[in-house]
Write a protein that binds this DNA or RNA. Sequence first.
DNA 1: AATTTGCATACTGTATACAAACTGCAATGA
DNA 2: TCATTGCAGTTTGTATACAGTATGCAAATT
Lengths: 223, 223
Amino acid sequence: MATYKTRAQFVADDLRGRILGGEFKGGTQLRQDALAKDYDVSRIPVREALLTLESEGLVEFHAHRGAFTTELSVAKIRELFDLRVLLETYVLRHAINGLTDTDLKKAEDTLLEYDQALNSGGDIDNWSEYNFAFHQALYAPAELPETLSLISQLNTKSDRYIRMQLVYTQEIEKAEQEHRGLLELARQGDADQACELLKTHIQEACEGIVALLEERAKQPETS
Amino acid sequence: MATYKTRAQFVADDLRGRILGGEFKGGTQLRQDALAKDYDVSRIPVREALLTLESEGLVEFHAHRGAFTTELSVAKIRELFDLRVLLETYVLRHAINGLTDTDLKKAEDTLLEYDQALNSGGDIDNWSEYNFAFHQALYAPAELPETLSLISQLNTKSDRYIRMQLVYTQEIEKAEQEHRGLLELARQGDADQACELLKTHIQEACEGIVALLEERAKQPETS
DNA sequence: AATTTGCATACTGTATACAAACTGCAATGA
DNA sequence: TCATTGCAGTTTGTATACAGTATGCAAATT
């Protein structure tokens, strides 16, 4: 924590990880006092951290009742993934036009680094990060920072559900193959096919999550 | 102020209006103490309001140096407007499929209300609000709340520049005609043409703003 | 017994107080 | 002369203290 500029930022970053990691069920009230004790700070930086997380859609404030973790309906999940398709194919197309060798190298390095992590320890937390890093590396050449930031937002919101799916299925390998495919198509400069692959990549992930949620809805409480 | 839930929200709403209204030049430091005195509250709700505005892109925090109003480069403005084209044509298409008479009526009402405001008082502040309300009414039937929220974000970020343009040009009437055109095409169910009109509507506004900014860049300091 | 009222408790939202970081200027030294 | 250091003042970031609102339970009323 010594490296962090402010306590509020530290709390926000750590708490974000805990929420994405599934420590709290959707709709859980986050007690400011308890969090303050967790991090050994006062409630002020905790409140500021919660406000940051609210802007990221992970938490919701209700006046005088505090902050609650959010929960997404199936409809909203579908909407988020549709938006990802729209925005990510958009930037991918831009990125592929004007893609340099060094850009390709960077994306490839991310992929390799991520292979190694997978073969060694490889828990979900790391995967989520590497997945994100690969996509950002692939999109970076588009030089559309605002768009990337929007995509990043959408990813944060859907991240909890993506992780959920990864635990219960063997999606990681499939995703990795698709990543290799994307890189190859990008190298060939085939934007149309790359976008098509990306689209199905995202849509299939969405369907997997929806299926899992509906499955889970049938069986209540399997503690 | 009694109607507001918390002081922080009140400050955020009012301060947003002041920033969008152009009270502060880009890059101005916002002193927490001064704002606290303005609103007769302590610095705590002011800080929370500033954090909210940061998440909207109107303000930026630098650790231990406080909050500064943001300023967009021409490249970023272009990027934002391109995103608006992408997202707004996307929802408009969805909205036009499955558009009911009552939906049309609502959008039309907004347009009429806004005519009246234009003929009576009609300052820029109101125009910005009505413009936003009309677009939201037109898009609402798509039933894509996350997408609308994203569009709303983009509009907030670009709002300052749109207003700037309105002051110096006679864009309002032109925009109004385009609004009528959009409504008519929507009524006819012609999504393709409606999207095309919307696209040029947004792109021309963008070019107008860019031209104005570049004009202004040539003549430094006309105090 | 069920519903309502009043009260105690707990928690949030905000004010005040304090500590740490930044800024600018003057003094010092090369 | 210019760069560097040290210090004072200012401002931010955070802790503590207080006020107002929501929640839950018990007594009271029908």
